[in-house]
Amino acid sequence: MSATLDIDVPRHLLYSDDHVWVDEHVEPAMLGITQYAADQLGKLVFVDLPDVGTHVEVGDQLAQLESAKSIEPMISPVAGTVRYVNNAVDDDAEIINDDPYGEGWIVKIELDDDEPDLLDAEAYEKHIQ
Rank of each mutant, 00 (worst) to 15 (best):
V56T: 08
V56E: 00
V56D: 02
V56A: 07
V58G: 01
V58Q: 09
V58W: 01
G59I: 02
G59H: 02
G59L: 02
G59D: 00
D60E: 13
Q61C: 08
L62I: 09
L62Q: 06
L62P: 01
A63R: 01
A63E: 08
A63M: 04
Q64V: 15
Q64H: 07
L65D: 04
E66F: 11
E66K: 11
S67T: 12
K69W: 05
K69M: 09
S70Q: 14
S70H: 04
S70V: 15
I71E: 10
I71K: 12
I71S: 11
I71D: 04
E72N: 11
M74W: 06
M74H: 11
M74R: 12
I75S: 03
I75N: 04
I75D: 03
P77G: 00
V78P: 00
V78C: 00
V78T: 04
A79C: 05
G80S: 07
G80W: 04
G80H: 03
T81I: 13
V82Q: 07
V82D: 07
R83M: 13
Y84S: 12
V85L: 05
N86I: 05
N86P: 07
N86A: 10
N87F: 09
N87H: 13
A88R: 14
A88N: 15
V89D: 02
V89W: 04
V89T: 12
D90R: 15
D90S: 13
D90W: 07
D90Y: 08
D90N: 14
D91T: 14
D91L: 13
D91S: 13
D91A: 14
D92Y: 11
D92I: 12
A93K: 10
A93S: 12
A93W: 11
E94H: 13
E94R: 14
E94S: 15
E94T: 15
E94I: 12
I95N: 05
I95L: 09
I96C: 03
N97L: 06
P100M: 02
Y101K: 07
Y101A: 06
Y101Q: 12
G102C: 09
G102D: 14
E103V: 06
E103N: 12
E103Q: 14
E103T: 11
E103Y: 06
E103S: 15
G104Y: 09
G104A: 10
G104W: 08
G104N: 14
W105Y: 08
I106W: 02
I106D: 00
V107S: 01
V107D: 02
V107E: 02
K108G: 08
K108R: 15
I109K: 00
E110M: 06
E110R: 13
E110Q: 15
L111Q: 07
L111A: 05
L111C: 08
L111P: 11
D112L: 05
D113P: 02
D114M: 11
E115M: 10
E115L: 08
E115F: 05
E115C: 04
P116M: 03
P116T: 08
P116Y: 01
P116W: 01
D117Q: 03
D117S: 03
D117F: 00
L118R: 00
L119R: 02
L119Y: 04
L119W: 01
L119H: 02
D120W: 07
D120L: 07
A121D: 13
A121W: 06
E122Y: 13
E122G: 10
A123W: 11
A123N: 10
